[in-house]
Design a protein around this nucleic acid. Structure first.
Lengths: 186, 186
DNA sequence: GACAGTTCTGACCGATCGGTCAGTTATGCT
DNA sequence: AGCATAACTGACCGATCGGTCAGAACTGTC
């Protein structure tokens, strides 16, 4: 019944679907059955609401990436990363969808800058870990494709696949896709 | 020097980066060095500007999909589709990025409804052509991943890869990814 | 140079934006 | 019951939104 967490969820859904700039506090308030003033009572500003909505997902993403990049890029570490990444996507698909698509246009918002640093750090890691263009692109297609499939396809109104089945399929597909990419085991 | 086509390009870039609702006519006018009234002289409304910006890409997408779905799903037809899809992405990455990510939230805009019908038609085609969840997801990851890699990664400020190299790599990756999926040749 | 048509501007409209503030209602503790 | 605090509302603010309109500036043609 907590209004604050209701508002976070409602705001997240709005931000992800029509964008931060395209979302109005009034609309969020209407969906929550509250007044605009009540929204601003719980969150000091629209940006604070954004930070509350996507902050936890970014924390978790930072932890996952910190673990991954501090270890050698072995095949089993990569698999564990893919599993962790998939679990994170399943739990925070809207958040990821939001800062992947709108991150670059929302600079100077602190929580978004953290997200952009994350994505950039991930890209740089693949850049240093792989040499050829096609291998870099394999990572992009695997991670981007997984995020896309999970976040966007569902908005099409197709029948939802159970999470555990989705999880297994995504991990299989990403593993196949990255199989040709050399690891530091070689 | 045509202001109209300048405006189309500027508006497309804005729509793709901050969303349709997050873009103001004033900002488009400023970027074009014109007044807001001048923008509304060339395009009757914000929606008309959107239609002009993404309409051609949707036309081309419709043609590509029409060809593909009217033919049997053989391996070589699928390859030709992947090539055509990649070329379309390379030529219209901003448009595709825009209606993939914002299409579901912009219903009742005619040009967007056409785009949504397209994406839905593509999803239904894969739904009928493949049986297992993992195979459907392979299509999602392949097409979504390609679109993501092309449209979003570039906004990170990485060094751009030449288009022909990107094209070859994407087609290779998508072909690998879809290789396990049965075609009607079997 | 007069004229027509295209291109563009500035003033203006009602509506909505994010945000402030004073005051009201609901809640829980003693 | 009394009281502090949390939760919330409605009125209001300046700014900006998409869009209209009358007219100015530019263009080419005769």
């Amino acid at each position: 019944m907590s209004s604050a967490s209701d508002l976070r969820a409602i705001a997240l859904a709005e931000f992800a679907s029509v964008g931060f700039g395209g979302t109005s506090l009034q609309r969020i308030a209407d969906r929550a059955g509250l007044s605009k003033s009540a929204v601003l009572y719980h969150f000091a500003s629209k940006e604070a609401l954004l930070a509350a909505a996507i902050g936890p997902a970014i924390d978790r993403m930072e932890a996952l990436l910190g673990d991954f990049t501090s270890q050698p890029l072995t095949a089993e570490n990569r698999l564990r990363f893919l599993e962790g990444f998939t679990d994170l996507l399943l739990a925070h698909r809207l958040e990821v969808h939001m800062f992947i698509n709108q991150g670059p246009s929302l600079v100077d918002v602190p929580v978004i800058d953290r997200a952009n640093e994350l994505v950039l750090g991930l890209a740089r890691f693949f850049d240093s870990a792989t040499s050829s263009t096609i291998d870099k692109m394999r990572f992009g297609v695997a991670l981007g494709g997984a995020a896309y499939t999970l976040c966007t396809v569902q908005t099409l109104g197709l029948e939802p696949t159970p999470d555990d089945e989705t999880r297994a399929a995504l991990i299989t597909i990403m593993s196949e896709l990255l199989a040709p990419v050399a690891t530091s085991l070689d």
